[in-house]
Design a protein around this nucleic acid. Structure first.
Length: 835
RNA sequence: GCCGGGGUGGCGGAAUGGUAGACGCAGUGGAUUCAAAAUCCACCGGGGGCAACUCCGUGGGAGUUCGAGUCUCCCCCUCGGCACCA
């Protein structure tokens, strides 16, 4: 009988389901382990990236279960978002219907892969049972002053018809559709994530040791802390004070201009103070800047454009009048939107000054050189020695910065300040398919929160989406029109919805206690459950979330901890993070436009889930990109067939072999002892590869080696047959997290009445690990010349003596002089010779 | 420009400073077969040699070491992140 993977896989999926094998509870004698994958967007069907991600997670979950842990392993759907709206238009359906269909279909696909989720905990973020708690959490943030509305230049994607958070602008383009992002001046909802900037930064070093270094660096850069000082320029003419931030207060004596961002509020004031004939130029210049796209505006190589105003600010230290310019390279959303221009020591300021003929005054001299503002070719931005800086002349840069800031603070020229690159989270979206922001706009009271007891603010489901540019919520008067919770006057609901990253920032807390439906009414989750399960011990997902989801979720955890919903000391949600590489084909990411997409369903139909899972974990280490190859899949399939065939061909003999371990001490024959050693070395290295190294590909390689050894080993007597049985049981048990169905079937065929999926992981027998003999390499001047098989455990002297007496070694030593001999017991002897 | 990965056979990839290329894919030769598929056996970095064997070889160059894919420095290429952040 050859192996029927279809029948076998559905057979065992049903058994696990019937026996509730993978359901877990909050209380257990066993230690807990929370294994989590980033939940998918229900786009319609699983793709290979999902299969790779979840095959890793499931393998770990199954491994740890066998290792005696109480493993929480849940799955759900990140179900709000743009694609549902686009699909609704394209297929003439409703976002709600399309999304739920996809959820059910993808759940079936996941079940066919044999993933061991506790399905009772499934979360769907588009369900009112879930998003009402988004709204509740939003109100909690509002109560604590973390939510505000602000008019500001924000990122706008024309194609999506909505604003975007900073994190969602990737190289100047929309993260979802690639449209170049422009700036629009709009009033929007923000979350004060910057309140947590310092802790988000500090914890990277102290709490995120189990994260890839790459992600830690990306987050550190994203948060972007810089220390410096704020200084102010008085502008008595306009009764105004310009603040500017600098990290180089040691260059204050070199200030020769002030530059404002075109969006700076002072620009408006300046315009209003000038006769119309003169202000025209400024108005035109500002318009010209705002017409530039984000990419153009933020291109360091781009042309620096400026316009001089007739106004001057007073230098805080010298009192000299400094001309005020407006410049396109000043960003409104970093620092104060105004800078002190020091062209001698800042390349951007330098280029600007050269172009507009502004004076350049060097105040730092490099070692052994003398810079002259008239002849400098580039700004000098490195450390040097201060000059033209009053009493600070002669100080090296680092000392000058310290001394001058101290002095500046004492004389009220400046104040120490820390600036972050991280901005507040723009949370509102002008979209329909999302969580309604629970606010009402009252003409009398302004924006008023919806009272908690009125939650959820339901999202109408029976809605036709016809135009991507306009939220249909604006056209449903019976939803939009309401009364003010404060004064009772007619009022309008906020029609903006939340960024979907809000949903994904706490779903892992919900998994901890989403079993009984009635719990939905008690809270977002039950602290009893999160206290037990959180933090997530192993999180697995794509690197693309390094500065998106993985920052937002960290912020949420800190917030939830601060309001007492999570434990006080639970500040970080994910202890260990594994970022898996992409699945590529023919050197490129799988994409419809390239036509190189491989559908997991087709492959599973052809080869079975066990084979696909095994291949996808074997073909590359987890972090690397994985090149899809059907020949590789066939290789994995061949391996499983070899395992199947071995058990089937020897079934009667294996069933009748003694099913207990043969002690190493009782084995005398070399072949037996070697085979026994092979079995236990396999256990040792597979365990280490999975648990410590997270190198699943080499774990599988070890199991292939054991299988090869199994085919070679001759089971001629009782001891050998017992050994062979031991090897088969070990192989199946270690292979079961990778390919759970076929191994479960073989386990049953061998007569076991336990489920292999929850049979304890084998432990290695230390007595079986020690080698009897070793190959000792004899090197001459570091080059391998002779190999000798010798008994293990010879001490240095004995080993050296044995080697020196070897005829081949002796022959090579004739006529040369031994300078030195290095002896590494059980490994090598290196003879350094001359002549 | 700044920061970070990474360069090992035809390919994916292995190697606590100690035999480079585990395991797999592809390939070659053979067995089996009427034939094929499947399976099994052997070979499989390059040069030289009938052979024993020998020389070269982990992007390039230097260095540390008895010994370097692995450590140090310089350079090249490549992928990724950030990028006018004051």
């Amino acid at each position: 009988m050859s192996y029927d993977f279809q029948a076998t896989e559905s057979k065992w999926q049903k058994i696990w389901d019937d026996k509730k094998t993978f359901e877990v509870e909050t209380n257990s004698e066993k230690p807990k382990f929370y294994c989590l994958e980033m939940f998918p967007y229900p786009s319609g069907a699983l793709h290979m990236g999902h299969v790779r991600n979840y095959s890793m997670g499931d393998m770990l979950a199954r491994f740890l279960r066998k290792r005696g842990m109480n493993v929480l392993y849940p799955m759900g759907f990140d179900a709000f978002g743009m694609p549902a709206e686009n699909a609704a238009i394209k297929y003439k359906t409703k976002p709600h219907d399309w999304t739920w269909q996809n959820i059910e279909y993808m759940t079936e696909q996941l079940k066919r892969m044999g993933y061991s989720y506790d399905w009772r905990r499934r979360v769907e973020s588009c369900s009112p049972l879930y998003y009402r708690w988004n709204q509740w959490l939003f109100l909690q943030m509002h109560r604590r002053g973390l939510i505000y509305r602000k008019q500001a230049p924000v990122n706008w994607c024309e194609k999506c018809g909505t604003v975007l958070a900073n994190e969602q602008v990737v190289s100047g383009e929309c993260w979802r559709c690639g449209t170049p992002v422009t700036k629009k001046n709009l009033e929007q909802w923000f979350i004060k994530i910057t309140d947590y900037a310092q802790e988000l930064l500090d914890n990277i070093d102290t709490e995120l040791k189990g994260w890839p270094e790459r992600v830690r660096i990306m987050q550190r850069n994203w948060i972007g802390r810089s220390e410096g000082a704020k200084l102010s320029f008085e502008l008595p003419e306009l009764d105004y004070t310009i603040d500017a931030f600098t990290t180089r207060f040691d260059t204050v004596y070199g200030i020769t201009f002030i530059a404002l961002a075109p969006e700076h509020e002072l620009v408006h004031k300046i315009i209003s103070r000038m006769p119309e004939s003169e202000s025209r130029a400024i108005i035109d210049f500002v318009a010209r800047c705002s017409a530039q796209s984000s990419i153009e505006r933020s291109d360091a190589g781009g042309e620096k454009l400026g316009l001089k105003t007739p106004f001057f600010g007073k230098h805080p230290v010298t009192g000299k009048p400094i001309p005020i310019w407006i410049a396109n390279y000043i960003l409104m959303d970093y620092g104060t939107g105004a800078i002190m221009g020091v062209p001698a020591h800042d390349q951007r300021d330098f280029e600007f000054a050269r172009k507009y003929d502004i004076e350049i005054i060097p105040v730092i001299q490099p070692e052994g050189e003398h810079l002259d503002g008239k002849t400098m070719k580039v700004a000098f931005v490195d450390d040097g020695t201060s000059c033209n800086s009053g009493e600070f002349d002669g100080l090296p840069t680092q000392k000058a910065i310290e001394a001058m800031i101290d002095w500046g603070e004492k004389n009220a020229y400046c104040a120490r300040e820390v600036n972050f690159r991280l901005r507040d989270w723009l949370i509102s979206r002008q979209r329909y398919w999302g969580t309604p922001i629970p606010f009402v706009h009252c003409p009398k009271c302004g924006f008023v929160p919806v009272p908690e007891e009125q939650l959820p603010v339901l999202l109408p489901e029976d809605v036709e989406v016809t135009d991507v540019g306009r939220s249909p919520l604006l056209d449903i008067p019976e939803w939009l029109e309401t009364t003010c919770p404060v004064c009772g006057s007619p009022a309008r609901r906020e029609a903006d919805t939340m960024d979907t990253f809000f949903c994904s920032s706490w779903y892992f807390d919900r998994y901890c206690s989403s079993i009984a439906p009635e719990r939905y009414d008690k809270g977002a989750f039950d602290p009893k459950d999160t206290d037990y399960w959180m933090p997530v011990d192993q999180y697995i997902g794509g690197i693309e979330h390094a500065c998106l989801h993985l920052i937002y979720a960290r912020f949420f955890t800190m917030f939830l901890s601060d309001i007492g919903l999570l434990k006080k000391d639970l500040r970080e949600p994910f202890t260990n993070l594994l970022t898996q590489g992409m699945v590529i084909k023919d050197g490129a990411k799988m994409s419809k436009s390239l036509g190189n997409v491989v559908d997991p369903t087709e492959i599973v139909n052809k080869y079975g889930a066990d084979t696909v899972r095994l291949f996808i974990l074997f073909a590359a280490p987890p972090q690397n990109d994985l090149d899809w190859s059907e020949e590789g899949v066939e290789g994995a399939s061949r391996f499983l067939s070899r395992v199947w065939r071995f058990v089937e061909d020897n079934l009667d003999d294996l069933k009748n072999s003694p099913d207990e371990r043969v002690p190493m001490a009782s084995l005398t024959e070399t072949a037996y002892r070697d085979f026994k050693r092979k079995i236990h070395n396999t256990i040792l290295s597979v365990t280490r590869d999975i648990d410590v190294e997270k190198q699943f590909n080499t774990a599988i390689a070890r199991l292939m080696e054991l299988t090869n050894a199994l085919y070679t080993f001759k089971a001629s007597d009782t001891a050998a047959r017992a050994l062979r049985r031991e090897a088969v049981d070990t192989l199946l048990s270690c292979l079961s997290p990778f390919s759970p169905h076929i191994t479960e079937e073989l386990w049953q065929m061998l007569g076991h009445d336990t489920l292999l999926s929850i049979t304890p992981w084998p432990t290695e027998d230390v007595a079986a690990l020690a080698a009897d003999s070793v190959v000792v390499v004899v090197q001459f001047n570091g080059k391998v010349r002779v190999k000798m098989t010798l008994p293990a455990g010879l001490d240095e002297a004995k080993l050296k003596e044995t080697v020196m007496n070897d005829p081949q070694v002796k022959e090579r030593l004739s006529g040369v002089e031994i300078v030195k001999t290095i002896v590494v017991p059980d490994k090598l002897v290196n003879i350094v010779v001359k002549g």
